[in-house]
Nucleic acid binder design. Structure first.
Length: 409
RNA sequence: CGGGGUGUGGUGUAACGGCUAACAUUUCCGCUUUGGGAGCGGACGACUCCGGGUUCGAAUCCCGGCAUCCCGACCA
């Protein structure tokens, strides 16, 4: 991608209506645009990152047998009345059309996925299975806050699993937990992310949240100093020892909930009569689990936790480009290198803008946060090649042009 | 939903109740310049969020609304 053709430009000033670092940097760098409180558009750079996060999640969920589908955003009122949530869920957006028909905008998809699964489940032989999708969720948050961390419209991966026995559910739940660990490792926040015990489970007594340590987080967790698992606030009040190792020394930290896994039991199977016949021919309710990850929240958390005062520092796995190629008045030589890297399948943002000073290109590059920066200038060429600098390091090296590929893996 | 803050060119700010609403930046034109947001000259760009009110006179004061941010409550 040539930067001279890029849809967005960077901004020098931080927008005055954003306090959260994630939104300030993402808007300044041209990744997102704010439409209204809690609602953001993803621009070409932002969408690239979002898609990379999505693909990592997709690979890990496919690996535990999840089948991807895409459910609707507009939901029949009837389904929500069946579960009682038409009236009880205050974040539910209700829309009325000109014929006075009422619908809901989906904030989550139990009300769709359960009736959807019903015709496909009759026997215990049909179980287990799991389905998921990436989709825009709508929640009428009374107070959107923290940039893209708590919005009114956001993309979520929600996975639903269906089981005949609790043993089978527990086995799958464990696999989902491991998939989540892989996901947060791969997107670059694994070290900061703790599994937190939360209330709500039936068999294991707990559900689990994935909490990333960050001062901008709105949650508080207590990290066990002995085994590093965490407990969320609502259960540490009742219990003073670690459920994992029985340690009793905790560190209090603010954190962002980037994902959760939850045992639904028969909460949604019951109202929809989702049943199967067991081996003896008895009808029994299907057991379910649900597993969510907010993509925008993950993206925002990466920015919150990995940026510095100059801009964003993307992990390689989700960076919009691998290389930021800066031409300092050397467009001809730079173009050759750019074409060569593209031919080799490297994702490159090529700052080919003419009449833009070196300093401005450096500032923009720091802000956008691409992992590798290659500078081509009269100076570098005289020294025998190009200059390579990593976004997360201060030092830089002059390397030969032929060496580039081997240095950017 | 309670409490507080803020609404001025695209962006960020300034302006005691009183001249044609100022400055920076962005953008455009010309020249010049290329290692940390370069320099000079010129140009474009605002019914000062909306609606009322007070006043000879309102960006400025008052009332209402809307928007937005923060704190709290809420958060399958």
């Amino acid at each position: 991608m040539k930067q001279s053709k890029l849809f967005t430009k960077t901004r020098r000033e931080t927008p005055k209506d954003e306090i959260a670092k994630n939104a300030q940097l993402l808007i300044r760098a041209g990744f997102i645009n704010k439409e209204m409180a809690g609602v953001y558009s993803y621009l070409p750079l932002g969408l690239k990152v979002l898609k990379k996060i999505e693909n990592i999640i997709r690979e890990e969920i496919n690996a535990i047998g999840g089948q991807e589908l895409l459910m609707s955003s507009l939901h029949p009122k009837e389904n929500w009345e069946k579960t009682g949530r038409w009236d009880s869920l205050d974040v539910l957006y209700k829309v009325t059309d000109s014929l006075e028909r009422e619908n809901a905008l989906g904030p989550t998809h139990e009300e769709i996925v359960v009736p959807l699964a019903k015709p496909f489940i009759s026997s215990y032989r049909d179980l287990p299975f799991s389905v998921y999708h990436f989709q825009n969720k709508f929640r009428k948050e009374v107070r959107a806050k923290s940039g893209i961390l708590r919005g009114r419209e956001f993309i979520m991966k929600d996975l639903y699993s269906f089981h005949s026995t609790k043993e089978d559910f527990e086995e799958y739940y464990q696999k989902a937990k491991e998939a989540y660990i892989n996901i947060f490792d791969r997107v670059g926040i694994g070290e900061l992310t703790h599994i937190a015990f939360a209330s709500g489970g039936s068999f294991s007594k707990y559900s689990h949240e994935f909490q990333t340590i960050s001062s901008t987080g709105e949650d508080v967790i207590y990290i066990c100093k002995k085994c590093s698992v965490a407990i969320n606030k609502e259960i540490i009040d009742k219990q003073k020892e670690c459920p994992e190792c029985e340690g009793d020394d905790f560190e209090e930290k603010k954190s962002i909930e980037v994902g959760n896994i939850f045992d639904l039991k028969t909460k949604f199977s019951d109202p929809f009569g989702l049943e199967y016949k067991d081996i003896d021919g008895n009808r029994k309710p299907v057991l379910m689990g649900c597993y969510g990850i907010g993509l925008g929240r993950v993206l925002g958390t990466i920015v919150e936790t990995l940026s510095d005062d100059k801009g964003i520092i993307w992990p390689k796995s989700v960076a919009p480009f691998r290389v930021h190629l800066l031409s300092l008045d050397q467009n001809q030589k730079s173009k050759e290198i750019y074409d060569d890297l593209i031919k080799k399948g490297i994702e490159v943002l090529f700052d080919d803008r003419e009449g833009v000073s070196a300093g401005e290109k450096f500032k923009d590059s720091d802000l956008i946060g691409i992992p590798y920066r290659i500078i081509i200038s009269e100076k570098s060429l005289k020294s025998g090649g190009v200059e390579l600098k990593k976004r997360n390091e201060d030092k830089s090296d002059i390397i030969k042009i032929e060496e580039i590929i081997s240095k950017i893996d």
